[in-house]
């Protein structure tokens, strides 16, 4: 047992520092994905809420596709397909130029596309739950459409969307493990490396799981705090 704990030490023969580095990359990837995912989600939700049937269809199609594909497949399609597409585009405008999509960038793109698909459903439900009168009231106060959205509607719908988004964040955190398959040194891949050298798969995969679990639990606490903050004005009515 002490031998196993020793394997987790920091320094050249322990794997503690490598695993933590991996966990750090996992967190960075998830955090970098979040803003893109949220923006995509909100935009697609607005598409689905638009009056034009064509725009609605576009939004629905986006959700159908990226909610239906396995995340691993989306990742492969972006990683391999995105690269081919980018090269073909560049060959048209600047032949002989090469471009490299790092696995980190491919990971962010794929994960935020998937996050956006699910988040758009959460946002749509929230948009529909904010009473129409709120928008009209904002207009009556002389706010522009954008101001009304930013200052009146968005804070309300964000409060409603928060629990759903919190769940999606947890899903995202776990989905980052898939990028280990496209050669990004995240927590799971670092664990694979450690297993390859030490031949202690059970111990190391268990440690990796516990690290993921710790990240999930911390996230759950943070989301709960955020929800509490956004619900301040509603505490009395409960």
């Amino acid at each position: 047992m002490t031998e196993l704990i020793g394997l987790l030490s920091f320094g050249s023969d322990g794997w503690g520092d490598e695993l933590l580095e991996g966990a750090f990359l996992t967190l960075r990837l998830a955090l970098a994905t979040l803003p893109f995912g949220l923006v995509i989600g909100l935009c697609v939700a607005l598409l689905k809420n638009a009056e034009s049937p064509a725009l609605q269809a576009l939004g629905n199609l986006y959700t159908t596709i990226f909610r239906g594909l396995p995340e691993l497949l989306t990742l492969f399609i972006i990683y391999f397909g995105g690269q081919i597409l980018l090269k073909e585009m560049l060959d048209v405008v600047a032949p002989g130029t090469t471009v490299e999509v790092s696995s980190f960038v491919a990971g962010i793109i794929a994960l935020s596309i998937v996050f956006g698909a699910f988040a758009s459903e959460v946002f749509l439900a929230a948009i529909r739950a904010v009473p129409k009168g709120q928008g009209e009231a904002a207009a009556a106060l002389g706010l522009s459409r954008w101001q009304g959205f930013r200052l009146v509607l968005f804070p309300q719908l964000f409060r409603l969307a928060l629990p759903g988004l919190g769940n999606l964040w947890l899903v995202l955190l776990k989905d980052t493990a898939l990028v280990s398959v496209i050669a990004l040194d995240d927590l799971l891949r670092q664990t694979n490396v450690a297993v390859g050298v030490t031949k202690e798969p059970f111990f190391f995969y268990l440690v990796a799981c516990l690290l993921y679990l710790a990240m999930s639990l911390v996230s759950t606490t943070c989301v709960a705090l955020l929800e509490k903050r956004y619900n301040r004005g509603f505490a009395g009515s409960r």
Binding site: L170, K174, D175, T176, A177, L178, S180, V181, L188, T191, Y205, A208, C209, Y212, L213, S216, L217
Partner: peptide, 8 residues
């Protein structure tokens, strides 16, 4: 529920 399926 708190760990990735792939890691499991």
């Amino acid at each position: 529920r708190g760990t990735p399926l792939l890691a499991q």
